[in-house]
Amino acid sequence: MKIRIKGNSLRYRLTKSEVSTLAEQGIIQEKTDFPANTLTYAIKASTWAELTADFKQSTITLHVPQNILKQWADTDQVSIESNMLLPDGSTFYLLLEKDFKCIDVDADEDQSDFFENPHLAC
């Protein structure tokens, strides 16, 4: 699982096995250890109507509606996105997507669990 944070945007990318685990178990998470603390990032299936996120106790959690998650996991749908409204009226962009094999292959990264890149199917 990869995360990318830039300003008020958060993007998660998942491999095939991570998508399967999330669909079957309803949760997936990883941790990054720092000298004084640990950052946890997770995705959880929810009963909420929209894609939302929160940050509590050093954990970033993306909450995905169960029905939307199932459709995404079981189809060729690439991503789920939403603009979450913040208390000050601004928005926080959320994106959950399947991780594709790179066109420019990085020899240091094992891409065997990535989704086939539709641009390589020419």
Rank of each mutant, 00 (worst) to 15 (best):
M1A: 15
M1H: 14
M1V: 15
K2I: 11
K2D: 13
I5Q: 10
I5K: 14
K6Q: 13
N8M: 04
S9H: 02
S9Y: 04
L10P: 02
L10V: 08
Y12P: 03
Y12Q: 01
R13H: 04
R13G: 09
K16R: 14
K16V: 08
S17T: 15
S20I: 06
L22C: 13
E24A: 15
E24F: 03
Q25F: 11
G26F: 10
I27Y: 11
I28H: 07
I28C: 09
Q29E: 15
T32G: 07
D33N: 13
D33C: 10
T38Y: 06
T38S: 15
T38V: 15
T40S: 14
Y41L: 07
Y41I: 03
A42E: 08
I43S: 07
I43M: 09
K44M: 07
A45I: 00
A45G: 03
S46H: 03
T47V: 07
W48P: 00
W48A: 14
A49E: 12
E50Y: 11
E50P: 00
L51E: 05
L51M: 11
T52Y: 07
D54N: 14
D54V: 01
K56R: 14
Q57G: 03
S58L: 03
S58N: 13
S58F: 10
I60T: 12
T61P: 05
T61F: 02
T61Q: 00
L62T: 01
L62S: 06
L62C: 05
H63C: 05
Q66I: 06
N67V: 03
L69T: 03
K70D: 12
K70Y: 08
W72H: 02
W72S: 02
D74V: 00
D74S: 11
Q77A: 09
V78T: 04
S79K: 10
I80A: 08
E81P: 01
E81W: 07
S82I: 00
S82R: 05
S82W: 09
N83R: 12
N83S: 15
N83A: 15
M84S: 08
M84F: 07
L85T: 14
L86Y: 01
S90M: 09
S90R: 15
T91I: 09
F92V: 06
Y93V: 06
Y93A: 14
L95E: 08
L95H: 04
L95Q: 09
L96H: 05
L96E: 03
E97A: 10
E97I: 04
E97F: 04
K98I: 09
D99L: 13
D99S: 13
D99P: 02
F100H: 12
K101V: 11
I103K: 13
D104S: 14
V105T: 14
A107H: 10
A107R: 12
E109M: 06
S112N: 10
S112W: 01
S112K: 03
D113T: 02
D113C: 06
D113V: 03
F115D: 01
P118H: 04
H119M: 02
